[in-house]
Design a protein around this nucleic acid. Sequence first.
DNA 1: CTTGGAGTGTCAACAAGGCTGACGTAATGT
DNA 2: ACATTACGTCAGCCTTGTTGACACTCCAAG
Lengths: 170, 170
Amino acid sequence: MADGRGPAGSSGESLLFLTDEQLRQAIEAMFFAYRGFTADPDRILVDMAYGRAHHRAIHFINRAPGTTVNNLLNILGVTKQSLNRVLRTLIADGLVESRVGRNDKRERHLFLTDAGRALEQTLSDAQRARMRTAFRDAGPDAVAGFRTVLEAMMDPEMGASYTRLKESGS
Amino acid sequence: MADGRGPAGSSGESLLFLTDEQLRQAIEAMFFAYRGFTADPDRILVDMAYGRAHHRAIHFINRAPGTTVNNLLNILGVTKQSLNRVLRTLIADGLVESRVGRNDKRERHLFLTDAGRALEQTLSDAQRARMRTAFRDAGPDAVAGFRTVLEAMMDPEMGASYTRLKESGS
DNA sequence: CTTGGAGTGTCAACAAGGCTGACGTAATGT
DNA sequence: ACATTACGTCAGCCTTGTTGACACTCCAAG
């Protein structure tokens, strides 16, 4: 495994800092960190009838108000059946509003209601608190590196969604 | 709340680089990156009868050969029933071997068989390939920052498991 | 030796949240 | 007119998580 290889890694001399062992550690760090990342909102959601899927939908509707179902589908990368199950409950509970499109009446544009925004705020406050602490402890340079690596890890398609959201939000 | 804030952020002047908007972007980056992170092994696993839970078990058994079920339970953070279901199939399929403990015969020590190691290799090769590319593109400084932030994001307990593995493996 | 408790395995039942396939409807584009 | 798109929905399946209950083995303490 990460054994009898000499100092020259499997990918060339410019990558000496990337031993298999270090990559393994990074993989584990990613695993444990993602658990921390979702832990706080998850704790809040269990008390309600919601799960992580609801959180994701709420997050991205808040981020791109008026987005269509199809657009959300692409961002989340799930089937319309999966998304619809979540959306149906959010609409029924009055957290999300679905408006028929003006130009194209086949489309449904999604918006958070006041109650939806309130929940979004609660969830993202919890999530941001941990991120803020972690970022503060790590420092600005580490944060910059963190984001650089995350962007490089994305699938190109997903990266495009990310960039679009990032630019619309700033 | 996250609205009409002036230049003084909600957490003090030394955190000016942490606006809510930047935290939101980091949250989204984490979401999209984790998808990329798991995509490659997931693609391999669907062809077999296995899922992500099997991958995780195989990964950590490979990392800490001879680990007990209870130890693995703590690392993975699932119930013994969930883990057992996965472990049972892996043992039945000859990828994992369970040996009764010598000192304490109640304990089962888990090892990968040759076949198990082969699958682990395949999966982690796929996962490492993406990480390696991302790390190469981002550069050593970014990678260092990446790991610093990830470690700061973990729950303290999980961070302890991570540190233990990290130190045993180096 | 008996007993309590820890470590483990297993059965049953259930829920969340993925998936596919199929079908219906309305609106749009050709 | 007809095909396609966008959406909703029903039915059924899978993985992976959960609780609760129970049995077994073994260690250690009384």
